[in-house]
Write a protein that binds this DNA or RNA. Structure first.
Length: 272
DNA sequence: TATAGTGTTATCGG
DNA sequence: ACCGATAACACTAT
């Protein structure tokens, strides 16, 4: 389920198969997924336009849209957030998946479109679907992207240091704060802190300079490897978030509890 | 049947 | 005003 790497995969799906088709229908009738818009608002704004580019910052995506005719002004951006369970699927005119599919469902639910909460239909008969069982995803026009912190893949050492140099929040809470750094979710956060050997509950203001450096290095390498691998499930720590697990580095028992409001696993020895 | 959950945000208290 | 903790959101899986 979506953290930055999965969202990047979804972005690539749209980039490969969702751009440049004229939009001939929009189903925006799901009032939860399309909040704060009323049914029909997004539809009216997009009919006759094309998606021309797709961007991502952290876990948020947005598509630029074309004018309706030649030399008409561009339309609003279409923002998409996958929430906890969303995925993007592109189908052909027969409704068969040509992009998306099981890219993080690992073989399950392929072709199961029961939970489609938003869709675009293109002039060629194909469609873009947002499938989201839990309905915590969001689709909206001109989403406020500026409130997000720097993308985790692009954050500079200077920006990172500023974010992790002061405050009393647990390191984990700060890693999850999308205003501070965008894209890290619960699993990536645990992986990052395990790799950097830092206790998740440490107040950020108490981190040494060396620890902040290790943290930054761990963020970059974890996020990059998860993006390359196609999702957070390729991260080593994910497999050790189970009762009775032992640290794959030192063999000590993995501890778990709640930090920053989320279930957290850490090595009882190296991250004491 | 009860509970946890890979995300975000409004609200409350210090 | 800032900072951090918590509940709520809607639904599925275990």
């Amino acid at each position: 389920m979506p953290e930055l790497p999965e969202v990047e995969t979804a972005r690539e799906v749209i980039q490969r198969a969702g751009l440049d088709h004229v939009i001939v229908d929009v189903d925006d009738s799901d009032t939860y997924e399309c909040r704060p818009h009323k049914p029909g608002e997004i539809r009216a704004a997009l009919l006759g336009r094309r998606l021309t580019a797709v961007h991502r910052r952290g876990k948020s995506m947005w598509c630029d849209t074309s004018g309706i005719g030649e030399s008409e002004p561009a339309g609003p951006a279409l923002g998409i957030h996958l929430g906890m369970s969303g995925k993007i699927v592109i189908t052909d005119r027969q409704g068969n998946e040509i992009e998306g599919g099981d890219y993080w469902e690992r073989g399950r639910d392929l072709g199961d479109h029961r939970y489609t909460r938003f869709s675009l239909t293109f002039a060629d008969g194909g469609s873009l679907l947002l499938i989201d069982p839990r309905r915590l995803g969001r689709v909206r026009l001109d989403p406020p992207v500026d409130v997000l912190g720097p993308d985790a893949l692009k954050i500079t050492p200077r920006q990172f240091r500023a974010t992790f140099s002061k405050g009393t929040a647990p390191v984990k809470a700060r890693l999850l704060d999308q205003h501070a750094i965008a894209g890290i979710g619960n699993l990536l956060a645990d992986q990052v802190m395990w790799q950097a050997k830092i206790n998740p509950a440490r107040p950020v203001g108490e981190l040494t300079s060396a620890e902040v450096s290790r943290l930054l290095k761990a963020v970059k390498s974890s996020v990059q490897s998860a993006v390359s691998g196609g999702g957070v499930h390729v991260l080593p720590m994910v497999a050790f978030r189970v009762r009775g697990a032992r640290c794959p580095r030192c063999g000590a028992p993995m501890a778990h509890g709640t930090v920053g409001g989320r279930t957290t696993w850490w090595c009882s020895r190296e991250q004491a």
